[in-house]
Write a protein that binds this DNA or RNA. Structure first.
Lengths: 360, 360
DNA sequence: GCAATATCTGTAAACGTTTCCAGTAGCTGT
DNA sequence: ACAGCTACTGGAAACGTTTACAGATATTGC
């Protein structure tokens, strides 16, 4: 019937232009709400509706240089702490009109670097990355990255990176203080790998807290393993064999704590009467356990939100309720914005795994 | 110094062509491994390396019509069953060279339809969607979708959709059989909304199993609420108030079961001696609970994997180890491939929440 | 060394948009 | 009805690739 355009694929701006008898420029303008004569607008809208036109986002990205996609890379989606981040990132990103690309890196450095480098492919407009080991290569790759990157975690202080961190050493300290203050004297530690930032910090906080409370550090009371439930189970067995008199276990995350709890149950040891258990992350697992776990809230959700907001700001999405006066507009063009570090305060959440519930 | 190209943005194929003194066509050919004279290849590679060239995936997508992105849309990333799917989908997609876009729909129909329709934007090459309510609009939208869609779930039998399903009615039946066969007589049900496919199926399986074992259906023993931990806690309280003599609770998923377990603990009721509890999904929560939960494995991971493989096949990625002879190549072009339904078999996993552990 | 061939290379078009620029049509005021 | 202005419109270029085609080299056989 008609000349062309109706042919094969989905309708484009060209099909609409033909059908409406206008130029593609006019179609584009109508569709983007630029001022147009009433008659033109109506014909274009009609044609677009009849054809069921939907703009091609790839073409739009190519022209506009923005994909409206963000990437989140984390070590392990099996860890509820990261799930909490994903959820929050998704919400904020979606609200700002961005889609979310997900990467699981298994905490493998090469994979993490690959994700950073892949920004050069222009597949997404920005990256939130959550590395548990931060090498000089990480820092360099991120500093050189071809799109904004926000790190969730704690890079070395001299690294000029945007990041959202939490002081998990203090978090660990708070947990151990709490254990000591509720009368525990032989407090064990089940930690993740100490060559990771979280592992190192937890170790540091644990030791400091012991000193603070006049307890001595005893290597026999510590175990180092992976951040996972099964690892917690095994480590707890080992510790109990070695030191049957321990009266508390502080675990570097909730997964480890859950594992430890299983071991204690299996051995008929009462929580918290015989042994108290505390975890970190305050993830859903802390509430899922029995007894509910005392845990240090490291603000996963909040960090996810803050990271996303910071990233959006770097992307020039004036982060709406920024509260501050809109001053920083005067950027001398070549000065990169000063890296910003945001810190959240860890918070101890006490539950029945360390303190018996008062009977009802 | 040089004429042009070095200017602003990242290096393109044009910059390389200039630097190497060849045409952009040659650059493209070298970079895509097409046959080239040795000298040309070397100069191009050298120039590309010096400039740190990375191909622009958006431009590539526009030309090629493929984005190498898949989308996964699920109701709630807080549910570990979906997390299991995400993880598996990620792995398979990544192995095939696809990135993964994530959508959380909160099980809101409009959001789900929007995701399906957004395929027309060509943002991703295919979609895996996991709706818990499947309306005629869903079916129609998916049938008309402008890219392949695989449903994880159970659309009505007459819907011509690719899907990966599991018979959760039978799953529920198996769980209730097990409870009855271990001596329980007053078996309660905590279900999710019955206007969802999973809710309806669980209800059906529960009733069938009761009949099978000569138990009568008692509305006073059932509660309907949301698929969430807090909902499980509340529902269990309600049921126990109403029927203090119940001796088992079958829960429509692990989150509800976990909630129920909390309630039982809080009331000092012993599991499984006084009341047995069974859940569904066999998620990490089932192992996290104490006592570990008997649960019906609905194959979340496997369904995620199968769905992704099916989707990749629809995308023409010859799914490698397909085993079959490569016959179906002869497609008469207009016949759409016959919709395929894959079903996984639910499997009961018995743990201590229904059967006391034999003492060691 | 020459023709015939095989191999490689460059030009240009295409993918679907947005946007600059110049031109044209429509208004306004008289 | 006309000048002058504004408001809209169409042509064309651009974003960074891939690829068909034709044209240019290099290779081979004698």
């Amino acid at each position: 019937m008609v000349t062309s355009g109706a042919g094969s694929g989905s309708p484009t701006i060209v099909s609409i232009a033909e059908r409406a008898g206008v130029s593609i420029a006019s179609v584009s303008r109508v569709l983007n709400g630029l001022s147009t004569r009433r008659a033109t607008e109506e014909r274009v809208r009609k044609a677009a509706a009849e054809l069921g036109y939907v703009p091609n986002s790839v073409a739009r990205s190519l022209k506009g240089g923005r994909t409206r996609q963000l990437t989140f890379a984390m070590p392990d989606i099996g860890n509820p702490a990261y799930v909490a981040m994903v959820r929050e990132i998704q919400v904020v990103a979606k609200a700002a009109g961005y889609r979310l690309l997900l990467h699981s890196t298994d905490a493998v450095t090469e994979d993490e670097l690959a994700v950073v480098h892949s920004l050069a492919e222009r597949t997404s407009d920005g990256l939130i990355i959550c590395p548990i080991r931060i090498t000089p290569q990480h820092v360099e790759a991120i500093e050189q990255a071809s799109a904004p990157v926000v790190v969730i975690g704690s890079p070395p202080p001299d690294a000029a990176l945007d990041c959202v961190q939490t002081d998990s050493a203090i978090g660990a300290q708070k947990a151990v203080w709490h254990l000591a203050d509720t009368g525990r004297r032989r407090i064990a530690l089940i930690n993740g790998p100490v060559d990771t930032v979280p592992g190192r910090n937890r170790d540091e906080g644990y030791r400091k807290a012991l000193t603070d409370r006049g307890l001595s550090y005893d290597p026999g009371l510590t175990a180092v393993t992976d951040f996972a439930v099964a690892a917690g189970t095994a480590a707890a067995h080992e510790l109990l064999n070695r030191r049957p008199d321990l009266d508390a276990i502080f675990c570097a995350n909730d997964q480890l704590a859950l594992g430890a709890v299983q071991t204690l149950h299996a051995r008929g040891i009462h929580i918290p009467e015989d042994v108290a258990v505390a975890g970190m992350d305050d993830s859903v697992l802390a509430r899922a356990a029995w007894p509910p776990l005392t845990s240090v809230d490291l603000c996963s959700s909040k960090r996810g939100r803050l990271a996303t907001e910071l990233l959006l700001e770097r992307l020039g999405e004036t982060a709406a309720e920024q509260g501050e006066q809109a001053e920083p507009a005067e950027h001398p063009e070549d000065t990169p914005a000063a890296p910003r570090r945001t810190t959240t305060e860890p918070r101890l959440v006490v539950r029945e795994s360390t303190v018996p519930a008062r009977s009802a």
